[in-house]
Amino acid sequence: MTDEVPAVTYPSGIPRPVFEPPASVPELLVLTGMSGAGRTKVAAVLADLGWYVVDNLPPHLLSGLVSAHVAGDAQRRLAAVVDVRGGEFFQDLDPVVDELETQGVPVRVLFLDASDASLVRRFEEARRPHPLQGEGTILEGIARERDKVAAVRDRADLVIDTSALNVHQLRDVVTAEVADEVPELQINVLSFGFKNGLPTDADFVADVRFLDNPHWQPELRPLTGLDAAVRDHVLASDGAAEFIDGYSSVIHDALRHYRAHDKHSVTIAVGCTGGRHRSVAIAEALGAALRERGHQVRTTHRDRPLS
């Protein structure tokens, strides 16, 4: 007769079977802290960095989450947002983290904090009550929460005070702490025809209808800007080289500041009349110029006819 698997009972009285992790287990980041300190923003940052993020998870389900993640996509790092919204289950967090660590699961606890004044201001600006406010004031709710999270804050691996941080600064701090590498800005240079309307997702729009139009050359009309004859015709047009050099320089300077404003992708739209000749050739040339400046770029052509 085999021995039964021992069970771990947490303070809430909910027994969970002991989780035995395989040789390779993804890192688990427990994101917690004061309500209003920025958990939602940080969870979004983690997701953008490729983490698998689960929000508002009762602590006693963490071992099951790790087990299921290992069986699925164990290459992605795992983050769980745990906070006082879980009610009495929040008190389970300390023993659950201890148990996971004894079982070989690498766990880090990230605690977000802020001054009482900052938290009160944020709740008032958002026009919503503190989750522990009840019939009292926001400040009373904050005080109750501080009592509940004190032990977790003390054992946290990293505490970030967000009082003086805007959303962009908070993202930078978190990225510096948890990212293996910062994802590249995704740049798409898109050709289009004005007669078919502006692209709805364009961040920059360039009009190249000032260039000589291959449409009026009978031998070029059935071709597109991806064909060498059309490309050479467009790039030899008066002003084409100057436009590509000047516009790529302006775009390069702008892109250097995009990360500071929490932008992850940018679409640069290049338009001509029909989106077939000039815009296609210039979009390809602009993409090449930006690659030479160190950017990762893809080019797409919205209105070019399929071959």
Rank of each mutant, 00 (worst) to 15 (best):
V189Y: 02
T175L: 09
R221V: 12
A176Y: 11
A206R: 03
Q217H: 14
F210C: 00
V173E: 14
D238Y: 12
L220M: 08
D180L: 11
V234Q: 05
H168F: 15
F192P: 00
V173R: 11
Q217P: 08
V230H: 01
N188P: 10
H233Q: 11
L220K: 07
F204T: 02
L190G: 00
V208L: 02
A241T: 13
F204G: 00
F204D: 04
V230Y: 01
N196Y: 14
V173H: 09
V205F: 01
F243D: 06
D203M: 01
P218F: 10
A240T: 05
A228I: 12
D232M: 03
T200V: 13
A241S: 13
E184V: 12
D232W: 05
D172K: 12
L170A: 11
D212P: 03
Q217S: 11
L235G: 07
N213K: 01
L223A: 10
L170S: 10
V178L: 09
A206M: 12
V234P: 01
A206F: 13
V178C: 06
D212I: 08
A179S: 07
A236S: 12
P222W: 05
A229K: 15
N196F: 14
A240G: 03
L190Y: 00
P199G: 06
F210H: 01
A229W: 07
I244Y: 10
R209S: 05
L190H: 00
L211P: 01
A241F: 10
H233M: 09
P214Y: 05
V234T: 05
A206H: 10
E184T: 12
A228E: 13
G197M: 01
N213L: 03
T200Q: 15
L190M: 09
V174P: 02
G197C: 00
E177T: 11
I244Q: 09
A202K: 01
V189E: 02
Q217K: 12
L226S: 15
D172Q: 15
F243T: 07
K195T: 10
G197P: 00
N188D: 14
N213T: 03
A206C: 11
D180Y: 11
R221Y: 09
R171Y: 09
E181R: 14
Q186G: 15
H215K: 06
I187P: 00
S237T: 08
E242R: 14
E181H: 13
A240P: 03
D227Q: 08
T224P: 04
E181Y: 15
L235I: 05
D201W: 02
R209N: 04
N213C: 04
K195Y: 04
I244K: 09
A240H: 03
N213H: 04
E181I: 15
D212A: 14
N213Q: 05
N213D: 09
D238A: 15
D207G: 06
A206K: 03
E219H: 12
V208F: 02
R209C: 04
I187E: 04
V178T: 06
H233D: 13
A228Q: 13
R171C: 09
